[in-house]
Amino acid sequence: MERRRQHWWNGKWGRLARRDVFLNEDDTTGHFWVEAREGGAEGPSVRQEYDCEPDASRYVARITANTAIDQWRKMPAN
């Protein structure tokens, strides 16, 4: 079973601007998944699998770096 560990949002509303990044853990395999999604819940997403949380966290840090366009914020994982 996959469990959401963390969630980041770029702070923008709307189908064209919103981006979300999720860090999930698979309880069965112990692997971690990073999902990068565009445009909200129905938007396209890309998933990357990692063997350990530090590797997954480094990838998340790289893709959620604040820029002049996006100001990322950590959201409740729920």
Rank of each mutant, 00 (worst) to 15 (best):
L16M: 14
H7G: 06
R37Q: 05
D20Y: 09
W33C: 11
E38S: 15
R18Q: 14
D51C: 04
G14W: 04
G30P: 11
F22T: 05
D20K: 12
G11L: 10
W9V: 02
G39W: 02
N10G: 03
R47F: 03
G43Q: 06
H7F: 14
R37I: 00
R18S: 14
E35M: 04
A17S: 13
E25L: 05
A17E: 08
V21C: 00
R47N: 12
D20G: 07
H31S: 11
L23K: 04
D26R: 02
W8G: 03
A41Q: 10
V46F: 02
E25I: 03
W33K: 06
D26N: 15
E38F: 09
W33M: 09
G43P: 01
V21W: 00
H7Y: 11
G11Y: 14
E38M: 11
E49T: 09
D27C: 07
D20S: 08
R5S: 03
T29R: 09
K12T: 02
E42S: 15
W33V: 10
H7P: 08
N24A: 10
Q48V: 13
R5H: 04
R5E: 07
G14K: 13
S45F: 06
A41W: 13
W9F: 06
A17K: 15
Y50R: 08
E42V: 12
G43H: 03
